[in-house]
Design a protein around this nucleic acid. Structure first.
Lengths: 154, 154
DNA sequence: GATGAAATCCGAGTCAC
DNA sequence: GTGACTCGGATTTCATC
């Protein structure tokens, strides 16, 4: 995977990560390039996948998704089919923010946002333990979000 | 916490979450409002904290942060001071994307991005186990990112 | 092949209503 | 909330190195 990012590209990525609404003119001035050059470089960063998307980050508490839960999942069987089926089902559940296959005592970790604990209990009983091949889940309620979704450091 | 979001505001939030670079003109058309009205509403969504920030999401693999690790942490003591000291130290480590105080077998879960396993092992030995009050850590290497940082569903 | 200056065009932001 | 008006930035072209 070629990383043809010169110092100007890196600076642009860092600035756009902090503020995705930065105007091309301001960005150009900040990195010391002309607006035309800056514009062309920005287009390239998108076209070549360095920037996956630009997202307005909505405050969870403001849209009734203030409760965060981490769930460790163990499957019945450790077969490729079993994993594939589970992953496919997970992708259809919109309240799951993260789903990672891990090495260790669990098969998967899920990061879930819901309105409150009652919501979670309903979802847990109706949708999580009903996921294909689930043997066991362990729920970790988040009591304090010290750092949530920090920007990438590079 | 008052949620004075009408259906148009909600639609705007969802669209901006999918594409934070959407122009005001396009957004206005998409939600069926005049550009001036849409502009004022957008300003309000920012001013009142519904949108925390707009971020260009950089592809981790493209900037040598392709390795993801979840770490469960147990502290020596469960005192407020001990927690506070740990949290303060964590906030200074830029490779930690998430740090959540949880209820259960662990005190904290960390989500960490680094270049590769060698990076992580160095960081683990030099910085994680050196965090104040850490009794034990359990490392879960992520073998597959099924869903990472999905957009909020609301 | 990439750059920057200039030129055009469109949208952001502001006004009166 | 709407419609118009102005100004600044986005985007393209083009000459240049």
């Amino acid at each position: 995977m070629p990383h043809d990012l010169d110092p100007i590209d890196l600076k642009m990525l860092r600035l756009l990560q902090k503020n995705g609404r930065l105007s091309n003119a301001d960005l150009a001035q900040a990195v010391g390039a002309s607006p035309a050059t800056c514009h062309r470089r920005t287009q390239r960063l998108f076209a070549e996948g360095y920037i996956r998307q630009v997202r307005a980050m909505v405050t969870p508490q403001k849209v009734d998704r203030g409760a965060l839960v981490v769930v460790g999942v163990v499957l019945d069987r450790s077969t490729p089919d079993s994993f594939a089926e589970f992953e496919k089902a997970v992708a259809a559940l919109p309240f799951i923010l993260d789903c990672h296959l891990v090495a260790g005592d669990f098969d998967y970790f899920l990061k879930i946002r819901v309105g409150d604990m009652a919501d979670f209990n309903r979802i847990h009983g109706q949708q999580l333990i009903a996921l294909p091949g689930v043997r066991q889940t362990r729920t970790f309620f988040v009591m304090k979000e010290v750092v949530d979704n920090a920007a990438l450091d590079f």
